[in-house]
Design a protein around this nucleic acid. Structure first.
Lengths: 190, 190
DNA sequence: GCGCTATGTTTGCATAGTGCACGTTTAGCG
DNA sequence: CGCTAAACGTGCACTATGCAAACATAGCGC
């Protein structure tokens, strides 16, 4: 859930938009505002999205915790990773990464394998069970979002999509990298 | 960060929108799609927003943990709460709520007070320090969002705002409740 | 090849977060 | 008054986490 206080308020209708639920020619007005309205709208959307993400995990069979899931996602999205990389990506101490990997391996969601080039490094990668779990949670989020999207006027789908992409780009979201899909499962254990 | 896998991909340009960065007359096309594009865009935006929310906490002096912050927010947004209510709101065990309150009190962020009507109940409410902390984190998020918004074409502010509001409403985001502001600090300890 | 430093992983210790089972105090009710 | 339920708190076990320190290996200069 992770709600957040919403101090400053504002009218719920954008100054430059009609309120009939139709986008219409949304020619920007004089745009004198500093983007405060957008920020508040983003905060609201953020609360909704964060809560949704939390639920999609909480509704799970709970055999995996949120930190464990985050680690799984890192490996799923970036391919087999070293412990230190996972820890860095999650913003935690390497030691935490080590013990996280312990638990994931113990649960059968990931496997350790030594690199043949650097005998210090340990590569962690997902087992089929681990991949399935990540897929499942993502699909649940997608379903939930689909349900919500279906509840809003279809005419808003286009502008929302484009606007969100613009936002995501501005926020630094990497554009559509899916090189992580189909990475070979060649075992380099040795 | 809490990233999420993005299996299915799609072109980054909405089918019905021009790609010049200007909204223009975004009259919805035939809208034959099921909203899949919107869903993917939401997933991407979700990753960005969740990561931002996580950073706004991580960048903190770290004298408070995320669960502790969540508890603070619950009390901040809903006013003085019973331990059981906080626990329910956070989706955790009541016993966890008890110990969470212990730590918040110990850190001087909240205070316990017995209800005079129900001597079983314990009301938790924020100290000025607790309120200040919540404000600080929220402000940090707002600043971050402002920075991002400033990086995107101003012409997109209006459609984004309206579209996000439509989305938040569809997602069940409670519309602008700020009755929690200015709740009196009358001590009912006894 | 031999030190020396940097990197990658792991372990020990302390603290926080969590669920479950159980105990204690109090409310509510017949 | 006795019984049940509600609200907290405690004990136990396990996960999550940071910090410091130990270890193993890599890379580099000589």
């Amino acid at each position: 859930m992770t709600p957040t206080a919403t101090p400053k308020t504002s009218a719920h209708t954008a100054p430059g938009s009609n309120d009939d639920g139709q986008p219409g020619p949304v020619t920007a007005p004089s745009t004198p505002h500093t983007g405060a309205d957008v920020v508040e709208a983003l905060l609201a959307a953020s609360r909704a999205l964060v809560g949704l993400a939390a639920r999609s995990l909480a509704d799970l069979d709970a055999d995996v915790t949120l930190p464990q899931y985050r680690a799984l996602v890192v490996v799923a999205t970036r391919g087999p990773q070293r412990v230190v990389d996972i820890a860095t990506e999650l913003g935690v101490n390497p030691s935490t990464g080590t013990r996280m990997c312990d638990r994931l391996v113990r649960k059968g969601l990931a496997r350790r394998s030594r690199s043949s080039t650097d005998r210090r490094a340990v590569q962690l990668r997902l087992t089929p069970a681990g991949r399935a779990l990540v897929e499942q949670v993502t699909q649940r989020r997608r379903d939930e979002l689909t349900r919500i999207v279906a509840a809003m006027p279809a005419t808003w789908h286009e502008p929302l999509t484009t606007a969100l992409r613009t936002f995501a780009t501005a926020a630094g979201e990497p554009p559509e990298t899916e090189w992580w899909l189909g990475w070979t499962d060649t075992d380099q254990d040795g």
